[in-house]
Design a protein around this nucleic acid. Structure first.
Length: 587
RNA sequence: GCGGCUGUGGUUUAGUGGUAUGACAUUGGCUUCCCAAGCCAAUUACUCGGGUUCGAAUCCCGGCAGCCGCACCA
């Protein structure tokens, strides 16, 4: 059993992750979040919200998971998120149809399926594997398609990313933020991709959760006001050059900027913030690196793009976050498809005096003179230089036809006007998180199997060493933050134990109660689900109103008064209180 | 999607053409019980469908799922 199997086995057994639709045989690419997994996921999302929504101020929105066709035509997903496949009739192997005709036509990826079929037929292309006949090309789009409304309705798609929901709301968001750049919006939600062959558990799903921020910034100013916060943060950077050399270097954000490894401050800030988030949810820094996209893998519109990658036992380095400067690509694409200007007006600090040469054709006279051609003539006049306009008779060519315009019909002058700002299409910085993958990685990094010396029991059959499975989840993300355990199943201990449960529950902590089995067994049960602290009520508690708190990782115990125990636990979980200060040590 | 391997309680495992072994876990009870102790009892399984057969969990075919390889991976 490798670590992946152990983690998945534990996740299944203890109620973190279950295969979806198991009752009916299951379906690949879908996972259910079981009670503890669902809670763990919420905890991770909540930390993300704290950092991005509350601290950075990128308000969260929620948009439909189904999108209409126009949105994905504009985003390029309808055309570009699919591949033409064609299968061999003999051996069944599937090939990219456009790749098969690559060396016959110049731009194979622009061809329709019928055109591809024709070329394959005309050139007698056979299966590269077995030489068999090839079937017709068909489109395999990674988006799930559906119909909106009855009777076929209009085409709709399950969104393949949450990002488009922010882009299409750009104008509304801009107004919401009172026309000021930069601003950002976030969304945590489900996205859907009809993966051809999902495997690797929760690493590649057909329905998955993304947490995305779209930050709209002034394209001329990519500095970040708080970059100093992370200047000394040291990261494992796997840059384009580093990948060529095969070396990852540890370098501070400040130095990476100075050396021009990261394109600009804004991107650098978000790389560092991503690092901060991942470590806070429990990713170990030595298994975390930031890999820069190589020039040929980067989308053509992106300036710079970095993936946060986490090292896993079975799958090696996997991408969990993408942080990209997407420039004005998305807004331009939606502007073009929707025929709506998507831009922001930026006022200058000081108005500028701008001198320009202005041509004013007199339409009142041009109209009667040139009738239907008047507008084209006027446009041609505007394109002329001062010198050309200074002639008595000006000649312009429209649609190959020459027109002579009297100088009386056009005025021109150099004008100086006050310009107080300009219109820009903002650039977008996009950190995009794959929550499911991050959750898996926190589980894998938290998973520990330690050998502990078995206690001398009354029965010597026990081996001297036994393994203890401990989920060393960060206390902040643990789905159960504290367990309350009466030492024995006796009502005199159960009653005060349940009082402590309500006390802690009222403090807003995730607490479980367990009186089944021996105390040691219950400790181990809680170790396995990652409960950081256990409170035990014993007979002494009845006399001195105190309990023991046991620390999951060290197995040490302290004795603490029941009065105020909820605040002690809260500090341990959320405020980094040191365990040994939580009470007087036992033994 | 193609090829290979695999599929037995919650987990893990033994096994055979005549409905199944064990372990751990779980539940209840007993035991003043602080790191999976012990004792008693209980619950839970042959991935699904079709075929061959008197009889299939076992043999054959197909589906589904898992793993590995290929292809795919905005």
């Amino acid at each position: 059993m490798d670590k992946y199997e152990k983690v998945i086995e534990l996740a299944k057994r203890r109620g973190f992750l279950w295969n979806s639709f198991e009752l009916y045989g299951g379906a690949a690419g879908f996972y259910d979040y079981a009670p503890l997994g669902s809670t763990l996921k919420r905890r991770i999302e909540q930390i993300w919200r704290e950092l991005y929504v509350i601290h950075e101020g990128f308000m969260e929105i929620e948009t439909p998971t189904i999108g209409i066709e126009d949105v994905f035509v504009a985003s390029g997903h309808v055309g570009g998120f699919s591949d033409p496949l064609c299968e061999c009739k003999k051996c069944g192997e599937a090939f990219r149809a456009d790749h098969l005709v690559d060396n016959i036509v110049e731009v194979a990826d622009a061809l329709s399926n019928t055109e591809l079929d024709k070329i394959i037929k005309d050139n007698d292309i056979k299966c590269p594997e077995c030489g068999g006949d090839l079937g017709d090309a068909y489109e395999f789009n990674l988006m799930f398609q559906t119909a909106i409304g009855p009777g076929g309705g209009r085409p709709g798609y399950m969104r393949p990313e949450t990002a488009q929901g922010m882009f299409v709301n750009f104008q509304r968001l801009l107004k919401f933020y009172r026309d000021k750049l930069p601003f950002g919006a976030t969304q945590i939600g489900k996205s859907y991709r009809n993966e051809i062959s999902p495997r690797q558990g929760v690493i590649r799903l057909r329905e998955f959760t993304q947490a995305e921020a779209e930050i709209f910034i002034d394209p001329r100013d990519k500095t970040h006001p708080n970059i100093e916060r992370f200047a000394d943060t040291s990261l494992n950077l796997y840059s384009q050059e580093g990948q060529e050399r095969g070396t990852v270097e540890q370098i501070t954000i400040g130095d990476a900027l100075k050396q021009g490894i990261i394109a600009h401050e804004f991107l650098a800030y978000h790389i560092a913030l991503t690092n901060h988030f991942l470590q806070r949810v429990g990713i170990s820094p030595e298994h975390l690196r930031f890999r820069q996209h190589k020039k040929d893998e980067m989308a053509h519109y992106a300036i710079d793009c970095w993936d946060a990658e986490i090292e896993t036992d079975r799958f090696g380095w996997i991408e969990v976050v993408g942080i990209a400067d997407r420039t004005d690509y998305d807004l331009n694409a939606h502007a073009k498809t929707s025929k709506t200007e998507l831009s922001a007006y930026i006022e200058y600090d000081e108005p500028k005096m701008v001198t320009s040469f202005v041509v004013k054709p007199n339409m009142g006279k041009l109209g009667p003179a040139f009738k239907g051609k008047a507008k084209a003539v006027a446009d041609a006049l505007k394109a002329l230089t001062q010198e050309e306009l200074e002639q008595d008779e000006i000649t312009v060519v429209v649609d190959g036809e020459e027109f002579v315009v009297s100088s009386e019909l056009v005025e021109f002058a150099e004008e100086t006007v006050k310009v107080s700002g300009e219109t820009v299409v903002p650039h977008v910085i996009e950190p995009s998180f794959g929550i499911d993958r991050i959750l898996y990685c926190t589980m894998e990094h938290a998973f520990n199997e330690e050998m502990v010396t078995a206690q001398e029991g009354k029965d010597s059959k026990k081996p001297e060493e036994e393994s203890r499975i401990v989920f060393k989840l960060q206390s902040e993300v643990a789905p159960v933050q504290v367990a309350v355990l009466p030492l024995m199943t006796k009502s005199e201990l159960i009653i005060p134990a349940k009082d402590i449960v309500s006390l802690i529950r009222d403090r807003g902590l995730l607490v479980s109660y367990d009186d089944s089995g021996t105390i040691g067994r219950r400790y181990r049960r809680n170790d396995e689900i990652g409960t950081p602290y256990s409170i035990t009520i014993d007979y002494e508690s009845l006399d001195d109103k105190s309990v023991t708190i046991r620390d999951r990782d060290s197995m040490n115990q302290v004795r603490t008064p029941i009065d105020g125990i909820e605040d002690v636990i809260y500090s341990l979980v959320y405020e980094g209180k040191e365990f040994k200060t939580a009470g007087t040590p036992v033994q």
